[in-house]
């Protein structure tokens, strides 16, 4: 299951979405997330769907890559759905047994919540799949630059993020190996009460932490050897500069957000 996390997995390509300035994509992801919580009713839902399909189409990343991220949060989604289903009060009772009540409103809420979560994951994975982590952090760094004036270490934080993203797949693989190796020594990660299981994780977690520290140490040295001395005086391979395409994307995003808000407050 761990292997299915799509976060931070860049999918190489040459689509217009790939070429967008990362700041646009960050903004876009933000706009989309906001829109998911703003929309209400079938029209808003349709607009959000059409917009998502449109973006997916032009970014040329196979659809299954986007859905992969969903597997990791299936449990969260199930919980959300169940809670919404049973805990939404309403007038149209569909089903009633003891303390369990399902209402029409509950069904609707659960359905919309599921849709929101799905769209959220798929929507943000469009951003991570079309932007290399380095671009992403470059974008973040530049977008948050003003904060460095008040002492926020923007460069350091963005560098940390980009490295974390690079190492996620490596650490996942390592977890898999350590787990198997301990199982080869008779370890049991699958049975027992919650406490027993937590205790059984020690043989997995200790080596994993040690390895992560060792890697961090190595990496720090490798960076130093390549003359890394923080953000001062660095140049960029891809300096961020807005192109025509980026302005177009901004306009499109704002139009979309406007549309969602309009539908929410004036139609429904």
């Amino acid at each position: 299951m761990l292997r299915d996390i799509t976060l931070g997995q860049y999918y190489p390509g040459n689509s217009p979405v790939h070429k967008l300035d990362p700041r646009v994509k960050l903004f876009g992801a933000l706009v989309y997330i906001v829109s998911l919580f703003v929309f209400r009713g079938i029209l808003g839902f349709l607009l959000a769907t059409v917009f998502l399909i449109f973006v997916i189409k032009i970014c040329q990343v196979p659809f299954r890559f986007m859905v992969k991220g969903l597997k990791a949060i299936v449990i969260l989604m199930a919980f959300t759905a169940v809670f919404n289903l049973f805990l939404t009060p309403g007038e149209h009772v569909l089903f009633h047994y003891g303390i369990f009540t399902i209402t029409m409103e509950g069904v609707k809420n659960a359905a919309f919540m599921l849709i929101r979560l799905t769209y959220l994951i798929v929507g943000t994975s469009v951003m991570t799949l079309t932007t290399t982590p380095n671009q992403l952090t470059d974008g973040l760094e530049k977008a948050l630059k003003p904060l460095s004036k008040i002492g926020v270490p923007v460069h350091a934080v963005s560098m940390m993020m980009s490295i974390a993203l690079r190492f996620i797949p490596i650490l996942i693989e390592e977890t898999d190996i350590i787990m198997k190796a301990q199982m080869a020594r008779g370890a049991n990660f699958e049975e027992g009460s919650l406490i027993v299981r937590a205790k059984n994780m020690i043989p997995l977690l200790v080596p994993l932490f040690i390895s992560a520290f060792r890697r961090a140490d190595d990496l720090a040295m490798a960076m130093e050897a390549r003359c890394y001395e923080g953000g001062e005086g660095r140049t960029k391979m891809r300096p961020l500069k807005y192109q025509g395409l980026d302005y177009g994307a901004y306009v499109l995003l704002l139009a979309y957000l406007g549309g969602i808000i309009f539908l929410r407050f004036f139609i429904v």
Binding site: K180, A181, M183, A184, R185, G186, I202, V206, P207, I210
Partner: peptide, 16 residues
């Protein structure tokens, strides 16, 4: 697994 012992590559990385 106890009767067919398997020593992985770089097994020292699993000491804990």
């Amino acid at each position: 697994r106890t009767r067919v012992g398997l020593v992985f590559q770089y097994p020292e990385h699993q000491l804990f």
